[in-house]
C-alpha cells in the first residue's frame, strides 16, 4: 500500500496561529486544507513535509461574501460551496461552469478554492477562471498583509508568490456590471485534468468590448492568461470574425506541454477553438448573440 513518510501534525485555530506555526517550523511546514493534491503526493512520496499544519478549523478562512463591490471567496471555501452559490453563479457564470467540471463530487466536497490556486498546477481550472476575472489574492504574513493581482500570483508550475511564512486568506473579484463570462473544458473523461480549458469574461458597451479577460489552463499560457488576445479585443465590436481571430492570437501565444493528453498541434488548435467558443458563450450570456 502507498503510505506517506513520517510527519508531524499541528492544528491551527486562527489565521494568526497558522502564520505563527509556519514561522515556527521555518519552511518545513506545509498547510493542509482539503488535501486532495498534497495527500496523494505524500503517499507517492513526491512530497515529504516534516510538519502538516491543518487549517481546516480556521473559520476566518471560510465563507463567500460581497463587500465593497467585490466578491470575496475565503481560501477554505470548498469547491462545492462555490458551485452551489447562486449569487456567484449570477455574477460570474464562469465560476459555476468551472466548478461543475472540476474533478468529481468527492473531491469537490473537500477540496478548497485556496488550495487549488496555491497548488499552481498548470492544468488547474480555477487559476484560469479567477485570472480571467482579474481577481486579487490576499496573502497574510507574520507582519503584513499583501494584496496581489492573481495575474502576478503565479511564478511558475507549482510555484506562487506566497512565501514560506505566509498563507492565502481569500480571493477578491471586482464586481462590474455589463458583462458575463463562461468556462469550457475538454477532458478525456469526466474528472480527468483538462486537456485544455478556457475561461472568458467580457464587458460590453453595446457591441463594443470595453474589457475582457481570457484564462487558459493546461495549454501553456503564461500566468494562465491570453494577454495578447485580450489586447486585440479591447475596443473592438463583437463579431464572429473578431472572436475567431482572438482565438487564433491566443493559440499563437500558447506553448502547450506535450503529454499523453495530446500533442502540441492539437492543444494549440484546442486553445483557439475554446477561446473563441468561450468568448461566444460569454457574449451570448451578456445579451449579444454572435
Amino acid at each position: 500500500m502507498q503510505v506517506p513518510a513520517q510527519f508531524e501534525y499541528e492544528r491551527a485555530t486562527s489565521i494568526a496561529h497558522a502564520v505563527q506555526l509556519l514561522g515556527k517550523y521555518n519552511g518545513a511546514g506545509r498547510l493542509i486544507a482539503g488535501g486532495h493534491s498534497l495527500i496523494p503526493m505524500m503517499k507517492l512520496r513526491l512530497a515529504r513535509p516534516e510538519v502538516l499544519i491543518d487549517i481546516n478549523e480556521v473559520a476566518e478562512l471560510g465563507g463567500i461574501s460581497r463587500v465593497d463591490g467585490e466578491l470575496r471567496v475565503g481560501a477554505l471555501v470548498r469547491h462545492t460551496e462555490l458551485l452551489d452559490d447562486d449569487e456567484v453563479a449570477q455574477l460570474f457564470p464562469i465560476l459555476r461552469d468551472a466548478e461543475k467540471v472540476i474533478a468529481d463530487p468527492i473531491v469537490r466536497n473537500r477540496g478548497t478554492v485556496g488550495g487549488s490556486v496555491c497548488q499552481a498546477d498548470p492544468s488547474e481550472d480555477l487559476s484560469a477562471a479567477f485570472s480571467a476575472l482579474r481577481a486579487y489574492a490576499v496573502v497574510q504574513g507574520a507582519e503584513t498583509q499583501r494584496i496581489v493581482p492573481l495575474r502576478d500570483f503565479f511564478v511558475g508550475p507549482y510555484e506562487t508568490v506566497v512565501g514560506p511564512g505566509e498563507l492565502l486568506v481569500e480571493l477578491r473579484v471586482p464586481v462590474r456590471t455589463g458583462g458575463s463570462s463562461a468556462f469550457l473544458k475538454v477532458s478525456r473523461r469526466a474528472g480527468d485534468w483538462a486537456v485544455g480549458a478556457v475561461g472568458a469574461a467580457v464587458w460590453l458597451d453595446g457591441d463594443v468590448i470595453t474589457e475582457v479577460g481570457i484564462g487558459l489552463s493546461a495549454l501553456g499560457a503564461r500566468n494562465f492568461v491570453a494577454v495578447e488576445a485580450e489586447d486585440f479585443l479591447r475596443g473592438r465590436s463583437v463579431s464572429a470574425d473578431v472572436l475567431g481571430e482572438a482565438g487564433r492570437i491566443a493559440a499563437e501565444h500558447c506553448d502547450p506541454p506535450v503529454d499523453q493528453r495530446g500533442p502540441a498541434d492539437y492543444k494549440r488548435h484546442l486553445a483557439a477553438t475554446l477561446v473563441t467558443r468561450a468568448l461566444q458563450l460569454a457574449c451570448r450570456r451578456a445579451g449579444r448573440e454572435v
Binding site: R188, V195, R261, G262, Y266, K267
Partner: peptide
C-alpha cells in the same frame, strides 16, 4: 481520445 480523433481528421493519426 479527443487528440486522437482530431489527429485522425487531420490525416496524421497518433
Amino acid at each position: 481520445t479527443p487528440a486522437a480523433v482530431w489527429r485522425a481528421i487531420q490525416g496524421r493519426p497518433l
